[in-house]
Design a protein around this nucleic acid. Structure first.
Length: 277
DNA sequence: CGACTTTGACCAGCGC
DNA sequence: GCGCTGGTCAAAGTCG
């Protein structure tokens, strides 16, 4: 792989209102203050704070650079697909599955959720009237179960990637117990194929940056395969968020300290990336 | 007719 | 050991 095609692997989710949550922050909640970053910039004063600012500036710039190549949950799966370490379950029929183990005992002792540690939680905003549990994330899913859980009166839907069994990704979708207009999707595993719907992915990327809670709008299409073709016009709130981001970017790039810090840290980061190859 | 959803049943894990 | 719970299966139903 040449340097030009390298992906800069930086977590840009930060506190900028992105929905992406990493396995390290699975309890992430929708960001209530998308302008938190801007306010932290204004408070900078000490040397220590300047270091923090420098780091945030780099992250902010990368975020802006990546606007057209946003690291959405989908992309994060793609980026991580070489890190697959979880056991893949055979996904054929029950008996066939059992046959793939040397004994029933081995089958039943298999880890049930080997990918749980890699689960990623994403929030989607939907209309209150939309009772479906279908979210548009660009991939095609097959629903294989639904269950009412103890801690939430709304049912939880279970989906497998439609490319299964070759693709091991699963997701669970459930309405937020606090806010019924929010769908919480838990993704487990990494897709081992490209997003089948480029258009949907692109739209998701834009929404991920634009939404106040980083929640792409959900489609209420009956079928999960249909939601990849749904119209994805940005909402008013999303447009405002995009404007806010643009103003922040313009303000930061006018700051000489910002540009100097960015140049220095970008170079360091790129060198580190090259050294790491 | 194939792809997909629904839904009751089954299973393992866990706490008591 | 038992009951509860979450996750999965698979037959039946639905849709295009």
């Amino acid at each position: 792989m040449d340097a030009a095609s390298k992906t800069i692997d930086v977590d840009v989710s930060l506190n900028l209102g992105l929905a992406v949550s990493t396995p390290e922050c699975e309890d992430a909640v929708p960001q209530e203050d998308p302008c938190r970053f801007a306010s932290s910039v204004r408070r900078v004063g000490s040397v220590k704070e300047e270091v923090v600012l420098e780091k945030k500036m780099l992250e902010m710039l990368l975020l802006l650079i990546l606007r057209g190549k946003c690291i959405s949950p989908v992309d994060r799966f793609d980026d991580q697909r070489n890190e697959v370490s979880g056991q893949e379950y055979p996904s054929t029929a029950f008996r066939k599955r059992k046959l793939e183990y040397s004994s029933d005992e081995e089958y039943y002792k298999r880890p049930r959720e080997s990918n749980r540690s890699r689960a990623q939680k994403v929030y989607y905003e939907v209309d209150a009237s939309d009772m479906s549990l279908v979210v548009n994330d660009g991939y095609q899913w097959r629903k294989y179960g639904q269950k009412v859980t103890r801690d939430n009166p709304s049912p939880r839907a279970y989906f497998k990637c439609s490319h299964a069994p070759s693709c091991p990704v699963k997701k669970k979708v459930q309405r937020s117990v606090d806010n019924p207009t929010i769908l919480i999707a838990n993704y487990e595993g990494e897709h081992n194929h490209r997003c089948p719907s480029h258009a949907a992915t692109t739209s998701l990327k834009q929404n991920s940056f634009g939404s106040s809670h980083s929640m792409p709008s959900s489609s209420s299409a009956k079928s999960s395969s249909a939601d990849t073709s749904s119209a994805l016009q940005p909402t008013k709130a999303e447009v405002l968020q995009n404007l806010s981001m643009q103003q922040m970017a313009a303000s930061l790039t006018r700051n000489p300290a910002f540009t100097a810090a960015i140049t220095r840290t970008m170079l360091n980061h790129m060198l580190a990336q090259i050294d790491g190859e």
